[in-house]
Every structure is written in C-alpha cells, then in structure tokens.
Amino acid sequence: MSKLHIDSVTKSYNNKIILSDIFVSCEKGGIKGLIGRNGSGKSTLLKIVFGTEKPESKFIRIGNKVIKNISDGRNLINYLPQNNFLPNNISIKSLINLFLEKENRKIVLENENVKPLLNKKNQDLSGGERRIIEILLIIHSNAKFILLDEPFNGVSPVVKDYIIEYIKK
C-alpha cells in the first residue's frame, strides 16, 4: 500500500530555524491539513516535500521509493503552488491536453466550470477561474499524493464549497 512518509525535515533561514525535525505521514486517499501562522513554514515544508526548496535535511518516501528530487516524484507527487502557475499564451484546452493523461482529460474537459473556458487563454481568466482549473489539473493528474498550498486563494465562497466537495470526492 502507498504511504507518504516525511521525516527529519529541517530548514533554517539566516540562522533562524523554521522547520525542525518535522514528521508527517499520510495514507493514499487520506487528507492531512497543515495549520500555522504566517511565516511558520507551511509552504516551505510543502516545497521541500515536492523538491523545489533545498532543506538542511529531509527524508521523503512514497511506498518503497525515496524521493530526492522533482524527477523522482514524477507521477507520485504533485504540488499546487499559492500563485497561478499556468503558462500564458496557450489555450486552456491545450494546457489540459498536455498536462493530463488521455483517460483523465475527458473528466476535466467536460467539467461544467471548465467547458466555457476551453478556448480562452490563461491571461484572459479571472483569479477564481484559474484556480479551479489548476486544482482540477492537479487532482486529476496521475500523482498518488497531491500537495495543495492555499487552494482557496482568490476564489468566491461558492467555488470554495465546490472545491472542498471535489477534494473530498
């Protein structure tokens, strides 16, 4: 059975220790939340797990595979950053087709929130519209574990409820 195992994560900035010996584990299908004040290191921890931030020490394992960098985590772990990450000047339809495997594309392409936006480009969308597309892309990717950093950034209360239900599904 797949299990995400995060152990011994230590990170400091300018001699100030932000993360010290963090341990988190999560079963596939489980939902874990990180709660903390601004600047307490939540996003930093997620970036370290994903592989885009370098810590002093870390041990990340999914099943039997040790994740040391982004390439190791391919199809195992995906990350939704706080801010918009979709490239500009490419239609949403193309972005979905490039990002998702064939079997997962249909679900996103036929989603009621995505359908009207398919021929638009990233820069023509509102913050909420972008966010919902990003979340759907990450959720329907082939990754076994997904890390969502502030998924409700810039979304309306109605969309927020929709996202919560979607994540639970």
Partner: peptide, 18 residues
C-alpha cells in the same frame, strides 16, 4: 518575469536542469 510558471513543468516531472 514568470518564475511560478515553472511549476507547470515541475508537475510533469521536468526539473529546472532539464
């Protein structure tokens, strides 16, 4: 200009070096 857009490629398993 658009450093955050790297995450689209990172999520596909493509690193900065690649």
């Amino acid at each position: 200009k658009n450093k955050n857009q790297y995450y689209y490629y990172y999520n596909l398993g493509i690193s900065n070096v690649m």
